[in-house]
Design a protein around this nucleic acid. Structure first.
Length: 572
RNA sequence: CGGGGAAUAGCGCAGCCUGGUAGCGCGUUCGGUUCGGGACCGAAAGGCCCCGGGUUCAAAUCCCGGUUCCCCGACCA
């Protein structure tokens, strides 16, 4: 491509509304422009990277026995009613009516459509396993789109689905896709972790999220520093605490007036104890029943873990106005002692041997509260959110909490949709069975943004070679004469060698060309100027390392090939 | 949805408090000098000052209503 003919509108200044570097750099490099919140146009340069990521995905999915399909974007509402997601998905599902007043939705994901497609064709166990995928736009009416292409309302996603005859088949498909997804992200130059993810109350089968570790990530992941355990903090388990020997006798609970003392911090300050000695009591409501959860003051209840541990479909805190009627005191003074509802404790409550808790009388607290002596939880479970340094559930080592960008998700669905939508086959014994499904997704734009988050410096993007919009940029420092002629020849030769090349033939000053080349992040830069031609050479520079060398003109193509190969080697 | 901020030239912003007919930097166009890390001189183009209403001799500026965008909390690729 000749730069003079290309639409690559780079910006010198950072647009004010871009918060994270990937968003800033995609705008500055002229790769994307916003149309409306969470909806972006991809410009030629941005689309080149998108296409390269898509190609990698196709190659890996095909290698994992996937077959590409193309599913509709407009779905009839009936299909979503059949699966139950018309109600369950809520406002995130973008709905509209056609001219006849029929309800329709824009594809947010395609379990319904794929299940409908397959149920019409699937008859025999001999047709299984089946792996279908597509790469296409999705619409989710996100509450708050942000970070550019990272969380959009309209975005391109690879969505894949597997159908198996039995659990063992699902396991094999899942493992195959796990490896395929790992390959995709590795080839995109990403440092990532596959972490255990929450599966919700339904199914209970396993799920992994592929997380790119980056400070700008919206998710938090717990990673064991000693073993391979890694999980989304939504789900991360925590090893139980060591037994806490009671040192000496603890006096009976004593009520203390604590006017205006409400939060855990207030309580800790008032009594002059660390927050870890305060017992925090919260009321929750799940599937129509109310119960209390007790955690240590320095810990947070994890609603996802709570829901899963109790096997509930939904869990939500009880509205503050209703608390006094249930607990006998306002929020801030409720406590577990004598509480007339079922009380469940987090395992780490046992480390409190002499605690402070609400007295269930407004503006009063109890000191010398001993779990097990002064109140008895009906159950003790792992209910809190992991924090940095918590013990790993596998090996007891320390968990580290890191930020992550979820670029992919794989999920053992089981028979949720195949049962609801009667997608069945006859097994080897002639028995009708629902297909056992898996569902898989990769955010393509998100992968691109994540790659920038991990590969940039103060001057701009540093593309990993496999997803770089161009591999090489040739910069003639003059647009006429010998310099231009040599640059043109190099441009042709590099293209003939199979590289994607951008020739900066603009009538720009050298500084401008250098800045733009760095900003858009082309891995290799080749400069041709009067100075280099005096040596019969071109100057070759590696964007990532800054390494510069003069290379004889007739060796330049070979040198570029060597450097690209070296940069593509899986060193990271 | 709740809370906070913003809307003025393609981009980044000032002007608003204290009304008087719109400005700076970058970019763009033309001419010239420059030419290895975003040059310099000269000339020029470019504005429903978010929209609607009100106050006033006069509104970017004050008042009322609305819209849009951005940021912080519950979802997901």
């Amino acid at each position: 491509m000749r730069y003079s003919r290309a639409l690559i509108p780079t910006l010198k200044e950072t647009p004010a509304d871009a918060e994270v570097v990937s968003h800033q750099l995609m705008l500055r490099a002229g790769m994307i422009r916003q149309l409306s919140p969470g909806v972006y146009s991809f410009l030629p340069l941005g689309l080149r990277t998108i296409r390269k990521i898509e190609r990698i995905i196709r190659e890996e999915m095909d290698a994992a026995d996937g077959q590409e399909v193309e599913l509709p974007i407009v779905h009839p509402a009936e299909l979503w009613m059949e699966s139950g997601r018309w109600e369950r998905m809520g406002p995130e599902l973008l709905r509209f009516k056609d001219r006849r007043g029929r309800d329709a939705v824009l594809a947010a994901t395609n379990e319904e459509v794929i299940t409908d497609l397959v149920r019409r064709e699937l008859r025999s166990w001999r047709q299984l396993p089946l792996h279908l995928y597509q790469i296409r736009v999705k619409y989710r009416d996100e509450i708050r789109p942000r970070f550019g292409v990272m969380r959009g309302r309209e975005f391109t996603m690879e969505d894949g689905y597997t159908f198996d005859a039995d659990e063992a088949g699902l396991e094999a498909s899942y493992q195959k896709l796990y490896r395929a997804y790992s390959n995709v992200f590795r080839r995109c130059g990403l440092e990532f972790r596959a972490v255990e993810a929450d599966t919700g109350a339904i199914g209970g089968s396993s799920s992994h999220e592929f997380m790119v570790l980056a400070d700008s990530g919206e998710d938090a992941v717990a990673i064991c520093t000693a073993c391979e355990y890694a999980a989304n903090v939504e789900k991360a388990a925590i090893a139980p605490p060591p037994p806490s020997p009671r040192d000496g006798e603890v006096p009976a609970p004593e009520r203390v007036a604590t006017p205006g003392v409400r939060s855990v911090d207030d309580v800790a300050r008032f009594f002059g104890v660390p927050a870890s000695r305060v017992l925090k009591t919260l009321l929750f409501e799940g599937d129509g029943r109310v119960f209390a959860v007790v955690v240590r003051g320095d810990h947070e209840v994890n609603e996802v873990k709570l829901r899963t541990a109790l096997g509930l479909a939904t869990v939500a805190p009880v509205a503050e106005e209703r608390v006094p009627a249930i607990a006998g005191a306002k929020v801030g003074s409720i406590g577990p002692v004598g509480l007339p509802v079922e009380t469940i404790a987090d395992a780490w409550v046992s480390t409190v041997t002499d605690g402070i808790a609400g007295a269930r009388v407004d503006d009063h607290h109890l000191k010398h509260v001993v779990p097990g002596r002064d109140f008895s939880p009906t159950r003790t479970l792992d209910l809190r959110t992991a924090v940095d340094g918590d013990p790993c559930p596998r090996c007891g080592g320390a968990l580290a909490i890191r930020r992550g960008i979820e670029v992919g998700h794989i999920f053992k669905l089981g028979t949720k949709y195949s049962e609801a939508m009667r997608c069945t086959f006859l097994d080897a014994n002639g028995v009708e069975r629902p297909a056992i499904m898996g569902t898989y997704g990769i955010g393509v734009g998100r992968t691109m943004a994540a790659a920038i988050e991990q590969n940039h410096d103060k001057d701009g993007i540093i593309w990993p070679v496999p997803i770089a919009p161009y591999h090489v940029t040739v910069l003639p420092l003059a647009t006429t004469g010998e310099v231009m002629a040599r640059a043109e020849r190099l441009y042709d030769d590099l293209r003939a060698a199979g590289h994607d090349v951008l020739l900066d033939d603009r009538d720009e000053r050298p500084g401008g060309k250098f800045k733009d080349a760095d900003l858009i992040g082309i891995p290799i830069r080749v400069v041709v100027s009067d100075k280099t031609l005096k040596q019969g050479a071109a100057e070759v520079k590696v964007r990532r390392t800054g390494e510069v060398r003069m290379v004889p003109l007739d060796e330049a193509v070979a040198e570029v090939g060597r450097l690209l190969a070296a940069l593509s080697a899986p060193t990271r």
